[in-house]
């Protein structure tokens, strides 16, 4: 029970520390704003049914998520070791394993929260994208400007509210802004259900493509895997070295199928490298959604098993390394 409470306490601390970093808010806001602006800037005239908006949203989720995951993991552990707070914590009856696992769980929470924001933005962005609307009187392409504007303004409104709370109640700006952002996104999500594409009141219908959610979950799993890798590396390496290694692993994983042969014939070395290096292509399945396609939940389940196994294996290696690391 004591160990469980310790785990919870440290997990919470890690999450709070991560969301209080200004860079986290910057990355989240940038992801949401870019996702929201995309359908309003791209002038497609051929009825692509929001594919560009959807793919852009998922791509931004992945890209910004990578930075969130790798930087948060690098700086969380490396900074604690460097500043001496790790030694202050580990001098208490806290095991190193528990410390590392709680770091992973805390960062996982943060990644989940970020992904939730990115997913909501992608869903709404896809809804905003123009559709061919035909009535008995006229036909044309209609963009849901109202939802789009609400989505674009949400991050700025969140910062405004956080500014007010910081001014009057001295609450920390960054973490407050992030929490308010989540609330505002949920509100925008809900409110948009009461309006149609032209901004007129109608019966409640969110009009979003729920099939985007499995794609978003897959990306979240990829971010969790990268977080585990970054955390394990930062047990020994400094921030910069970990970031460079994560960058290298990301590039290798992205081109894994091409370089190490994928499912085709390959040498023993290539096979080993293919197995060891995480294949990010497994988690990028946006193309499957084209022309009304679906990502089956069974695939998501298998990806979950892959991500879970890979993260666990990486963390075990990180734990073994961390156990014998000097903490000054």
């Amino acid at each position: 029970m004591v160990a469980f409470n310790q785990l919870l306490t440290l997990t919470r601390l890690t999450a709070v520390e991560a969301i209080r970093q200004p860079i986290f808010l910057l990355l989240t806001n940038a992801c949401i704003v870019l996702t929201a602006v995309m359908p309003m800037v791209l002038l497609h005239q051929f009825g692509e049914e929001g594919k560009l908006a959807r793919d852009s949203g998922l791509a931004f989720h992945f890209l910004f998520g990578l930075f969130v995951a790798s930087y948060a993991a690098c700086s969380s552990l490396a900074r604690e070791i460097g500043s001496g707070t790790a030694s202050a914590v580990l001098s208490k009856p806290v095991s190193r394993s528990g410390f590392l696992i709680s770091k992973f769980l805390g960062l996982g929470l943060v990644i989940f929260a970020f992904s939730a924001c990115a997913c909501m933005s992608t869903l709404m962005s896809e809804r905003v994208a123009e559709r061919l609307a035909v009535t008995s009187n006229a036909g044309g392409y209609v963009i849901d400007w109202q939802t789009g504007w609400l989505l674009v303004c949400a991050p700025f409104a969140a910062m405004g509210v956080a500014g007010l709370l910081n001014y009057y109640r001295r609450q920390p700006f960054v973490s407050t802004a992030f929490l308010v952002l989540i609330v505002l996104l949920l509100i925008v999500f809900g409110v948009s259900g009461w309006f149609d594409r032209s901004g007129n009141l109608s019966s409640f219908d969110l009009r979003v493509q729920w099939r985007i959610i499995p794609a978003s979950i897959l990306i979240t799993l990829a971010l969790i895997v990268l977080c585990a890798i970054a955390l394990s590396l930062s047990a020994r390496l400094g921030t910069f070295a970990t970031l460079v290694c994560c960058f290298g692993i990301f590039v290798l994983g992205l081109l894994s199928d091409y370089w190490f042969g994928g499912t085709g014939e390959r040498s023993a070395v290539s096979g080993l490298l293919y197995a060891l290096i995480p294949n990010w292509q497994h988690f990028w399945r946006a193309d499957a959604l084209a022309a009304g396609g679906l990502i089956p939940w069974s695939y998501v389940g298998r990806a979950l098993v892959y991500a879970g196994t890979y993260s666990a294996a990486t963390l075990v290696l990180g734990l073994l390394s961390f156990r014998t690391a000097d903490i000054r």
Binding site: G238, F240, A241, V244, C245, G248, Y258, W259
Partner: peptide
């Protein structure tokens, strides 16, 4: 001394040799 330069050199060497091979 932070081994950044060394790490970069290794990564670059890997890229420059590995990329043309693949």
């Amino acid at each position: 001394r932070s081994r950044a330069l060394f790490g970069l050199a290794v990564l670059l060497l890997f890229l420059m040799i590995g990329l043309p091979m693949t």
